[in-house]
Design a protein around this nucleic acid. Structure first.
Lengths: 184, 184
DNA sequence: CTGTAGTTTCAGCAATTACTGAAATATACG
DNA sequence: CGTATATTTCAGTAATTGCTGAAACTACAG
């Protein structure tokens, strides 16, 4: 790696984290290099930066594309494929959450709904039924909330987040004034 | 597995998901069985339910304890250790998020802060510095928001979530009325 | 103590996942 | 076309992770 020490530490750390985030070391490192690079990079740049095989980079990039975390583009008069990461941090966060939701939450929601439709609930305990139902409801509540917040523009989102739990007080107050309003 | 078909499907699915959630199949399955069981279960109950080795169950339970997802308890006149999951769904969600935050976010925040302190930033590009800084800020914003929301009681939290993006409008309105208030 | 029931540890094996280099495929350009 | 360059696929291997049974440990009862 011919990168500065700061660069290196960052890349190595993202490699370690990549594993915990459902990718793998190389994929995490590729992402980190692209993330810190102002200009798009081609596969060979990544081979040089990371010292892994060309084919490994190819597979890694494919996976990052599946995650929609990198963008493919072309340079004029150059056949090679160049990759970059979005410059907008919110876009990156949204993609990450979307993807992990799609991989870690949505399949469960599908199964839970199936269980409640076709499940032979007679043979399963009352308690288990309740548990499955309240799990479904919890996931629905959280994902619906996220689908909703997803659409708020960055500036407002930032404001909302900074406000944090204080928002809750404003809304409590509003309830009192308007006489228990809200969607629920 | 001597469980109902609904039970079985649920357990098998959580096994598959366990892998994606940073545990592994057996750990996911153990959790699923405990989650659906009204009464606490001992290790041998889990061996019977899942058909895996006693030692595997032991290791799995150890990991679930590390995740703080199960509770150890004792029955009167029985030396065996019994395990259960909290009945409150919010408690479970909170634990899950806490744990994943601790494993997947906090270490990164630590590294990013280190990089900004001791990093030899001279040798690293301007752009990379900006990226590292805005990543730090983004993570700080999100984790501070979570730390804040964590403390809101379940009922209010549910209300807030159901309100979703609509909350934003109420707050926009409040801004206009009070003349740009809020923490920011 | 000694015996017994419960639990944990761990070495060895199994299964899965990650990585490589070589071969195959695709693409642009003369 | 043909050839040079870029990319992907894939079989084989390396590394990691998961699982088991046997042995070691623990705690309690007699």
């Amino acid at each position: 790696m011919n990168l500065s020490s700061t660069h290196q530490k960052f890349v190595i750390h993202f490699g370690e984290m990549g594993a915990r985030w459902g990718m793998n070391r190389t994929v995490g490192q590729i992402y980190a290099v692209l993330f810190l690079s102002e200009d798009p990079l081609c596969a060979d740049d990544l081979v040089n930066a990371l010292g892994v095989s060309r084919s490994n980079v190819s597979m890694g990039l494919k996976e990052l594309q599946a995650w929609q975390l990198v963008r493919l583009q072309h340079q004029p008069n150059d056949r090679r494929e160049y990759f970059s990461t979005p410059s907008d941090m919110w876009e990156i966060v949204r993609t990450l959450v979307d993807q992990r939701k799609a991989r870690e939450i949505d399949p469960t929601l599908t199964v839970l709904r199936e269980l409640q439709l076709d499940g032979d609930f007679d043979s399963s305990s009352e308690y288990a039924q309740e548990r499955i139902q309240s799990t479904t409801q919890m996931i629905e509540l959280l994902t619906e909330w996220y689908d909703d917040m997803r659409l708020v523009d960055s500036q407002r989102l930032e404001k909302l987040l900074k406000m944090g739990a204080a928002a809750q007080k404003v809304l409590d107050f509003k309830d009192k004034v308007t006489g228990k309003g809200g969607k629920n």
